[in-house]
Amino acid sequence: MTVSADPLELGYSFCPNDTFIFYALSHGKVNTPTPIHELLEDVQTLNDWAGVARLPITKISYRAYFSVMKDYVALRSGGALGRGVGPLIVARGEQGDLNGKTVASPGALTTAELLLKIVYPGVRVVRMRYDAIMPAVERGEVDAGLIIHESRFTYHTHGLSKLLDLGAWWEGETGLPLPLGAILVRRDLPTDMQQALQAAVRASLEYAWQHPHEPKAYIRQHALEMSDDVMQAHIDLYVNEFSLDVGEEGERAVRELYRRAVEAGAVEASELPLFVEEG
């Protein structure tokens, strides 16, 4: 394998599940096939950057991945899939059918918005940063909000109630875990580099599980106003066996979400492989 003298840029979010997974990799605790320079950004920014193939390795929502498959392929490790992890629709009170009503969304290329539009194809979407959604719903600027990340643990503090758990809806429809976020590498990287990066991400997560207290200061540094309990609950919920390896069930879930995205007209069908081949 040819190792570049210039570091590869790795983009991931400020969320505790990402900083937990990538702590060891970004702090030189595990071997990497080439030097890595991390860039932390919100998920919507990472989705936008992937649209122009800016980063060689990046966290992204699965919905956004389906739109950039010509440039990227997903690693089997480091992603977020699971049960009981889905986005929630919240409001100040009962809203009934949301078709024709305004719902705040964290982004056009989020898995959350894809699910929202599958369930309510006639909804009117207003997009904003994920951390601005609950205050907007609380102020009555929109009828409901689509919340992700740690917001699922704190919406009660804004006087909001849950209208629908889109993850539970997905699981009821398919019997499969919900794919939320993936780690992608550019398809123009050599296959052995893709596989080595996949191994490095897996080793980074294994290190974090073996040394759970070591990453805490790094996670806290990027966790904004999140309490320690919410921070840990976030990690416990979003980092699981699918994060170590997507596995056969996780692959089926991703393929089903992709099929439904194509069926809904959100993306075009492609014959490209969804995941890096195993070494």
Rank of each mutant, 00 (worst) to 15 (best):
V123H: 07
V123R: 09
V123I: 03
R124N: 14
R124I: 01
V125S: 09
V125P: 05
V126M: 04
V126R: 14
R127A: 14
R127Q: 15
R127H: 15
M128N: 01
M128H: 10
M128S: 11
M128E: 09
M128C: 03
R129A: 13
R129S: 12
R129G: 11
Y130L: 01
Y130T: 00
D131K: 12
D131Y: 15
D131S: 12
A132K: 14
A132G: 11
A132H: 14
I133G: 04
I133L: 04
I133H: 10
M134Q: 15
M134F: 09
P135K: 11
P135E: 06
P135H: 09
P135F: 10
P135M: 06
P135Y: 12
P135S: 07
A136M: 14
A136Q: 14
A136L: 09
A136T: 04
V137F: 06
V137H: 07
E138Q: 15
E138F: 10
E138W: 03
E138C: 08
R139C: 03
R139Q: 15
G140F: 10
G140E: 05
G140I: 02
E141W: 13
E141A: 07
V142T: 02
V142Y: 08
V142A: 04
V142R: 08
V142F: 12
D143N: 11
D143R: 06
D143E: 13
D143K: 06
D143W: 05
D143A: 11
A144D: 09
A144W: 10
G145P: 02
G145Y: 06
G145W: 08
L146I: 03
L146W: 10
L146K: 08
L146G: 05
I147S: 03
I147A: 03
I148P: 02
I148C: 05
H149G: 12
H149M: 11
E150Q: 11
E150H: 14
S151M: 07
R152P: 00
R152E: 05
F153V: 01
F153S: 03
F153R: 03
F153C: 01
T154W: 08
T154H: 12
T154R: 14
T154M: 12
T154S: 12
T154D: 07
Y155W: 02
Y155S: 00
H156E: 14
H156P: 09
T157C: 00
T157I: 07
T157D: 13
H158W: 13
H158D: 03
H158I: 01
G159W: 03
G159R: 04
G159E: 00
L160M: 07
L160Y: 10
L160Q: 02
L160T: 00
L160H: 10
L160G: 05
L160V: 01
L160P: 06
S161A: 12
S161K: 13
S161C: 09
S161M: 15
K162Q: 15
K162H: 07
K162S: 13
K162Y: 06
K162I: 02
K162E: 15
K162D: 09
L163W: 05
L164G: 11
L164K: 12
L164N: 09
D165P: 03
L166R: 08
G167F: 00
G167Q: 04
G167P: 03
A168L: 08
A168S: 07
A168V: 02
A168T: 00
A168E: 14
A168F: 08
A168N: 05
W169D: 01
W169V: 02
W170G: 05
W170E: 02
G172P: 00
G172H: 05
G172C: 00
E173T: 11
E173M: 13
E173R: 15
